[in-house]
């Protein structure tokens, strides 16, 4: 029982990372209606910008704020420059554009900041949160910030005009345009917000996994998994899904003997596929209803 509790707590700590990423994934899914494979690399790049700012001597929170602002602008710019011209291309071409973005950002980060592993400071301190020491203060802070972002997003989408307009633009672009919403700019805004949230996720994750150009590859995958399990239409579900994936991964690694360390990822993913087979739109997502 002791071991079980410990594993759940450790799972919650890693789950915090995934939840953070899952939230960013869902955010952009709301804005553009598909998954952005370059999301992880965007977050990684933002984190490098933050690291550079801190290296130049900026205090942490100033660098934090500046990075969010830069990421927001960069996200909007990417949408305007890279994806707007593809507006009428088939969906699969968009996915290839994401893959291209991923390759560009990854390689550029490696070129500018090289591939050595860098440590990233944490504002919450490194000591343990409880006596057992399974969850550090940073893990606690990360979970708190994720929940805070979630609350902020909930308020933004539920109670502001622009949030409503964004939801409308994503759900039904034609009708939204007829209602006077500038759909193109709403999409760009969605990209900007997703990039900003991604940058927060990156800066929170970096102290745990260390900063290097490939840090996000597996984390993004877990983020996708969390988002899909929780339901791509529900930010709250995505955060919960992220925690669930973290816990399941840890428990599978501990209790299923064949799994061990290396197969953890595989088992976690298979559990997720199994969940999806029972509940295809995720645990908290709205079922997909199409008009015939």
């Amino acid at each position: 029982m002791e071991l079980f509790l410990h594993q759940v707590l450790a799972g919650l700590a890693t789950g915090g990372i995934y939840a953070c990423m899952a939230l960013a994934v869902v955010m952009i899914y709301q804005a553009i209606d598909h998954l952005n494979f370059a999301q992880g690399e965007m977050a990684m790049f933002s984190t490098f910008i933050a690291w550079q700012l801190i290296q130049w001597g900026l205090p942490y929170w100033l660098a934090f704020g500046a990075t969010i602002a830069i990421s927001f602008v960069a996200g909007v710019a990417i949408e305007r420059v890279v994806l707007k011209p593809l507006h009428n291309a088939p969906v699969l071409s968009h996915v290839v554009a994401f893959i291209a973005l991923l390759a560009i950002l990854n390689s550029a980060a490696g070129f500018i900041w090289d591939y050595t592993i860098k440590s990233f400071p944490t504002p919450f301190g490194n000591g343990p949160l409880f006596e057992q020491g399974l969850m550090s203060k940073h893990d606690g802070g990360m979970i708190a910030v994720t929940l805070l972002m979630l609350a902020f997003l909930y308020l933004f989408f539920r109670h502001t005009r622009i949030g409503l307009a964004m939801r409308a633009a994503a759900a039904n672009p034609e009708s939204a345009r007829l209602a006077g919403i500038r759909v193109g700019w709403m999409t760009a805004l969605g990209w900007g917000m997703a990039a900003a949230i991604g940058s927060v996720a990156g800066m929170l994750i970096a102290p745990v996994v260390f900063l290097e150009p490939n840090m996000m590859l597996s984390i993004l995958l877990y983020g996708f998994a969390g988002a899909v399990v929780g339901g791509l239409t529900s930010p709250g579900g995505a955060v919960l899904g992220g925690f669930l994936v973290g816990i399941v991964e840890n428990l599978a690694g501990t209790y299923i003997p064949v799994v061990g360390r290396e197969m953890k990822l595989t088992i976690a993913l298979f559990i997720i596929v199994a969940v999806l087979c029972v509940k295809p739109s995720g645990l908290f997502g709205r079922p997909i209803v199409t008009r015939v």
Binding site: L86, A89, S93, A97, I99, L102, A103, F111
Partner: peptide
């Protein structure tokens, strides 16, 4: 910058 060049070529092709 091989990855970046690849990405740019891919974007241009698309």
């Amino acid at each position: 910058l091989a990855g970046a060049v690849y990405g740019v070529i891919l974007l241009l092709v698309i």
